[in-house]
Design a protein around this nucleic acid. Sequence first.
DNA 1: CGTCATCGTCGATGCGTATCGATTGAGCGT
DNA 2: ACGCTCAATCGATACGCATCGACGATGACG
Lengths: 341, 341
Amino acid sequence: MFTSKDVARLAGVSQSTVSYVMTGKRPISEETRKRVQAAIDLLSYQPNAGAQALASSRTRVIGLVVPVGGDLGNTGVVPFLEAITQCAREADYDVLLVTADEGAAGLTRLDARSLCDAIVMMVIAANDERIPVIPSLRVPVVLIGVPDDPVGLHCVDIDFTQAGRLAVEELVGTGHRRIVVVGHPPHTIARGNSFVGQFQRGVDEAAATAGIRTGLVQLPESTPSGAREVVDKALSGTEPADGLIVPHTSAIPHVLGTLLQRGMVPGRDISVVGHCTDSAAEEMEPSVTNVSHAPREISRRAMRTLFALLDDEGGNPPPYGVELVPSRLTRRATTVTTLRP
Amino acid sequence: MFTSKDVARLAGVSQSTVSYVMTGKRPISEETRKRVQAAIDLLSYQPNAGAQALASSRTRVIGLVVPVGGDLGNTGVVPFLEAITQCAREADYDVLLVTADEGAAGLTRLDARSLCDAIVMMVIAANDERIPVIPSLRVPVVLIGVPDDPVGLHCVDIDFTQAGRLAVEELVGTGHRRIVVVGHPPHTIARGNSFVGQFQRGVDEAAATAGIRTGLVQLPESTPSGAREVVDKALSGTEPADGLIVPHTSAIPHVLGTLLQRGMVPGRDISVVGHCTDSAAEEMEPSVTNVSHAPREISRRAMRTLFALLDDEGGNPPPYGVELVPSRLTRRATTVTTLRP
DNA sequence: CGTCATCGTCGATGCGTATCGATTGAGCGT
DNA sequence: ACGCTCAATCGATACGCATCGACGATGACG
């Protein structure tokens, strides 16, 4: 493999000149630049990452800490990974993958070994053991998700409270009065994410404003039979639901399936508002009125914050804080809009 | 941040001694070792990755090239990622994530910049543009998936042909004679993976052996309505199917749903054999008789090969070749076993 | 008591790049 | 012709670690 010294020899310049051509940190005459560039191209020279990291104390790597296990395929980490990797590459950064099961040690390792210049961490628990170590790291950290106490942290997340509010407002606005939320399965709740409560808070707020009360049924598991159980519960009693809100994405198709099985057509006999990505909402049958869930957008914003932190030259770093991305509601096939009495 | 020199000073030894304590490449007296270790612990010393890579020309990083876009969440890359990362960490390696859309340049970058010691690549196309550059890389590469011409490559994959055979044999063995395969959606086929044809080959072989002919219906898209269309086709005509084989995991629930809608109970009125992970098979309703799909097992084997290549000291590297992992068939609720006339 | 091997440790060097100060040469004014 | 400035380039060094050769101490053995 070739080094910058080889390039220098071939171009008839010193190694430092090659370095300056690559970084552009000192003026280089057009003629020299071309000669060096030709040598670089000829040898297909690419700088050694380790040496570069050592000399510049910049790795051009982003550490990405992802959750593991369980319903991850469902939770949809993949779009986050894709978007983050894409953003990183666009800025000529690479992505080092670390799993959450390394815990706080994973963070300190990334930092202490100088494996990366910054960390993106997808938060799991509201009260995460890793949060306390963050301030002691040299590298900046951006969280996707919001822990209980976000002081001194950079967080980006869906505005779950607004999402919950939006869902209720849509249903209330179209005349629904007996709204039931289909809660997350125990598995999700057990992880202690804060978004469960945040969404519910939005629901409660909007319900209070509208002067109605909402129901809440807990999903035993995100399967067809789990949905059946829960839907039956929501439809039973003296006041059967006329609108369902389903914050758990993977439960939505099961809820729809159950309703159809029961002979109730979503959008005709009952309304369903889901919390999911727009593309998922469109692909379901019938297409679901949804409050949007935009992993790519979230990721982009997180990366924007990250790069602002990285580019900051002692000047004015972006302030700590929580950036909440509002959801949009898109009316599709599953809401009854003619209900208004 | 502390360096090995700091540790050395604190322990009253030279820097090289610290290095030898950490690597164990030279004998160190028990007393010195303890003193050094105490200093390491006290300072929470961790070696600088860049310096280590530069000095040893070993990065302790595995490059992982993953496919992107489209139905990836469905395809289930996540378990591969998890298993590979876990294996890597167990051997004290990190994982650098690269997406397939970088193409061959991604591979050469990993290699030329010495970003990693080895590469795991999840193959997409049977005739992949990246395959030809592999032999020119200094780092070993292991493929998950098999391209058309696997000469000079290390590949690990599911034995799709055996899987197809197994599915047919199960149905034939339980008395089915009118077997229809529900093909992959165009989106998947367009990617040009070789496994589509391989599975079908297994199906054809087993059918020929049994002296029957199988049908094939193409799924227009992996949605409930796509499944409906395809199932109707399979059930129509003078010889309606008595057994369905569904190689596309995400189509299985839709096929089951359609059948139930049509009043046909899988496992009573018709049989369904899916190709999916065991856990997915168990979670569907009804639980699906499946030919197993074991991403974690595949990943582990790939990593085993990888480490064999890395550990090899000029001695006897593992030979090039394709390692096919056989599937198991597990009989669950969706096969009629009382059909035998 | 001298010789020699062995074990444990140290010093020096190199890995490939970034970067700082020094140097060269050209252009300019006087 | 002289000194001066400024642009462009070079040389030397540091980054933090691994590794090689060298060296001192220790003990075995004759």
